[in-house]
């Protein structure tokens, strides 16, 4: 049976972000850690916003964090793309490493999400090339 082609926005990796998306394909949530001051950063970028260093190492995140804020999308935009997904939850998650990441909360009723709810990363291979990091209640 044919599955319909994936029609949602896909990340376009660039020289800054490519290691992140290579990581998710390998089921690792990778973050840059500054070689000079030790601060983690996300989204990926060429400079450490804390000390402006360009030296950084990609580390594997614990994948654990807690919900900082969240929304529940009820009205799908565009309708033809998301009509089967609503209601779905998008959240900002504070990772244990001290950075915040935007993602989906899966594996629970979107209306059951609460502030500070512990979550952990799961990996969703949406196409052969792209795996998205999502989060489920921990």
């Amino acid at each position: 049976m044919n599955t319909p082609a994936y029609n949602k926005p896909l990340p376009a990796p660039d020289p800054d972000s490519a290691p992140f998306w290579e990581g998710t394909r390998a089921h690792e949530l990778r973050l840059q850690r500054c070689d000079d001051c030790g601060t983690h950063r996300y989204p990926a970028g060429p400079h450490c916003p804390s000390c402006r260093s360009t030296r950084a190492t990609w580390i594997k995140s614990s994948g654990r964090g807690k919900v900082y804020s969240w929304i529940v999308v009820v009205h799908p935009v565009p309708k033809e793309v998301y009509h089967q997904d609503v209601p779905y939850a998008v959240a900002l998650i504070d990772l244990a490493e001290g950075v915040r990441i935007a993602s989906n909360i899966v594996g629970c009723d979107p209306r059951a999400i609460t502030a500070d709810m512990p979550v952990e990363v799961v990996f969703d291979a949406v196409t052969a090339d792209v795996t998205l990091p999502k989060f489920k209640p921990a």
Binding site: A12, V73, A102
Partner: peptide, 15 residues
């Protein structure tokens, strides 16, 4: 198309 900063938001249906 989820380029630049949008690659960290739009793929999750945050548009």
């Amino acid at each position: 198309s989820a380029q630049g900063i949008t690659q960290y938001t739009a793929p999750f249906g945050w548009i």
